[in-house]
Amino acid sequence: MISFEPITADTMYIVSEIINSNEAYNVLENGKKERGEEELFKEYMNEKTDSYFIKADDTYVGVIDYMKQNPNDDHPWIGAFIIHSAYHNFSFGTQAYLAFEDKLKEEGVSVLRLGVLSQNPRAKLFWERLGFTHYATKPLHHNQVNCLGKEI
C-alpha cells in the first residue's frame, strides 16, 4: 500500500539517498551526479512547498514535492516526483501518483500541473500516460521545461 509521510529535518538523509540514487537525472537537472545536503535541505525543507516521502508499506521508495499554489500561475504544481533508482520499473511511480491524485481530489484540487525537462522524454511519456497534456515549453536555468497539466 502506498502512503505519504512528511519529510523532516531528521529524515533528510533518506531524501539524499533517494535523490542521489538517480545520477542520470541529477546530471540532466543540475549538471552533476550528486546533490549536496544543503541544496536538498533548501529544496525540501521550505515553507513554499509540502514535501513527502512515498512509501510502499514501510519502505521509502521516493519523494514528492508539492506546491499548493504556484505564484506564477495560481495553480497547484508537483515540483519533484522521484523514485529511488532501485525501485524503478515496479510501478511504484504510477501507484504513488494515483494515490497522490486521490489525496488531492479529497482536498478539492481540480487541476494539477508539473514540469518535465525537455531532455527527459521518458518522464514526459510517464506523465502523458497518466493523462497529463503539454501546454507550453519554457526556459528554466540552463534547461527547457515541458509544462504539463491535467484536470483531476
Rank of each mutant, 00 (worst) to 15 (best):
I2C: 02
D10I: 06
S21E: 10
Y25M: 00
N26Q: 01
L28P: 05
K32S: 15
G36N: 10
G36Q: 09
E37I: 10
E38V: 05
E38I: 05
L40V: 03
K42D: 09
K42I: 01
E47R: 13
Y52K: 02
F53T: 00
I54C: 05
D58R: 06
D58T: 10
Y60F: 12
G62W: 07
V63C: 02
K68N: 14
K68Q: 11
N70P: 00
N72P: 13
D73E: 02
D73V: 06
H75W: 08
W77S: 05
W77Y: 06
I78Q: 03
F81S: 02
I82Y: 13
I83V: 14
H84Y: 14
H84P: 00
H88W: 09
N89Q: 08
Y97A: 02
L98A: 09
L98F: 04
F100D: 01
E101R: 11
D102K: 08
K105C: 01
E106F: 05
V109G: 08
S110D: 12
R113V: 08
R113I: 04
L114Q: 13
G115L: 04
L117A: 10
Q119L: 14
Q119I: 14
P121H: 07
F126A: 06
F126R: 13
W127K: 01
W127I: 02
R129A: 04
R129M: 05
G131V: 02
Y135D: 09
A136K: 03
T137D: 03
T137W: 11
P139Y: 15
L140G: 03
H141C: 05
N143Y: 08
N146Q: 09
G149L: 12
G149S: 11
K150N: 07
